[in-house]
Amino acid sequence: MIIEIDADGGFGGIAAAALHKRIDVDAQTEPMRQKLNDAFGTRELQRLSTRDCGDCADRLTYRITLSFEGRRSRSFTLREDQIPPEMLDLIDRM
């Protein structure tokens, strides 16, 4: 699985907040692969996308795309407040 994350927005849409990350989950060590699969699984992303984000003004918006070999990719759009701190830490480490 390939995970691609694009983020933008934030206070006044500051360009410095824009990011693009791409990671091949299969190429990671087993502990990291497990963390990524748990955090970025389709069901987990679907669950997070339905969470209320309260006041989402001036928050980053993340577009997370999962690509699977031989299958159609899936994309999810999440606001910063919908993403748990552990997942944000993983994104920083990618």
Rank of each mutant, 00 (worst) to 15 (best):
M1I: 05
I2C: 03
I2T: 01
I3D: 01
E4D: 02
E4Q: 13
I5V: 08
D6Q: 11
A7Q: 08
A7R: 08
G10D: 04
F11L: 12
G12Y: 09
G13C: 10
G13V: 02
G13M: 09
I14S: 02
I14H: 04
I14Q: 00
I14C: 02
A15M: 09
A15S: 13
A16G: 10
A17V: 01
A17R: 06
A17F: 09
A17M: 08
A18T: 11
L19M: 15
K21E: 02
I23D: 03
D26A: 15
D26G: 13
A27V: 05
A27H: 00
Q28V: 00
T29P: 03
E30Q: 10
E30Y: 00
E30M: 06
P31H: 04
M32A: 10
M32I: 11
K35S: 09
L36K: 02
L36A: 02
D38Y: 05
A39F: 04
G41N: 06
T42H: 01
R43H: 12
R43T: 14
E44Y: 04
L45C: 06
Q46C: 04
Q46F: 10
R47I: 07
R47V: 10
R47Y: 12
R51K: 15
D52V: 11
D52W: 12
D52F: 14
G54V: 08
D55R: 14
C56S: 13
D58E: 15
D58M: 09
D58A: 11
L60K: 07
Y62S: 04
R63N: 14
R63H: 13
I64K: 01
I64L: 06
T65I: 05
T65Y: 05
L66W: 03
S67V: 02
S67G: 03
F68D: 10
E69P: 05
G70V: 11
G70Y: 10
R71G: 03
R72P: 06
S73T: 04
S73F: 00
S73P: 09
R74Y: 08
R74Q: 14
S75I: 06
S75G: 13
S75P: 06
S75M: 09
F76N: 02
R79W: 07
Q82I: 12
Q82M: 10
P85C: 03
P85E: 11
E86P: 02
L88Y: 04
L90N: 06
I91K: 07
I91M: 01
I91P: 00
D92P: 00
D92I: 08
D92Q: 12
R93E: 13
